[in-house]
């Protein structure tokens, strides 16, 4: 029997929307373009089909999302995932946390950091550079943001370059956006 997942996990749940996803048969040309639906690619997740109801933001969201998480240079992919996880912990987005914690583990082949974060939340212990990154993501994700000049200085002291700090700001903030969609428009369901 399937049930709603309330605890953090790296097992990716299924996402069940509270609203009706767009019916592809009723999609406009603009929606199909934003969804990148072609005759050979008709597989679109329910999440993206829900977002397709607002095509004027979805059109830009997908390239923006990919750029923030995967573009070249700057902060490492693994550390960007920690920015995403920090936000998802604050906003308790079980689904986003599962996906991005899983990616961190996959990239680093190390499960101890995520295990510590899932066990101890914002107080998790980890090596100093990662801790500065995680703390900054957590504080920026509060409402209002709780990040201050000393948190910024901690990033510099931990050895982050300005280009890396910018990428951390972007990945943490991006999940302030993603969590507010994923966690509020549907729920994570597991076996």
């Amino acid at each position: 029997m399937s049930k709603v997942v309330h605890e953090f996990t790296t097992t990716i749940p299924e996402w069940k929307p509270y609203v009706k996803p767009l019916d592809l048969a009723e999609a406009s040309a603009e929606q199909l373009e934003a969804l990148k639906v072609t005759p050979s690619n008709t597989k679109v997740s329910d999440y993206v089909l829900v977002l397709a109801h607002d095509v004027e933001t979805l059109t830009h969201r997908s390239p923006l999302f990919n750029g923030v998480m995967y573009n070249r240079g700057g902060l490492s992919r693994a550390e960007r995932e920690i920015g995403a996880v920090g936000a998802s912990i604050v906003n308790r987005c079980i689904y986003c946390a599962a996906v991005h914690a899983g990616r961190y583990n996959q990239i680093t082949k190390d499960e101890t950091v995520i295990a510590a974060i899932f066990a101890d939340g914002v107080d998790a212990e980890m090596e100093p550079r990662l801790k500065a990154i995680f703390d900054f993501a957590v504080k920026l994700s509060k409402c209002p943001s709780d990040a201050d000049a000393s948190d910024m200085q901690s990033l510099v002291d931990a050895g982050l370059g300005k280009d890396e700090i910018l990428d951390l700001i972007l990945s943490s903030s991006l999940f302030g956006w993603a969590n507010r969609l994923m966690h509020t428009l549907g729920e994570p369901v597991g076996e």
Partner: peptide
Amino acid sequence: ADIVRLSELVAFVSYQIRVAAGLRLMRGL
């Protein structure tokens, strides 16, 4: 559809405000 539009509005503005908050802190570096 309007529920999704409303959700994107809150979610996006929350993102934009945080990007600016982070950049303001960077300005001090």
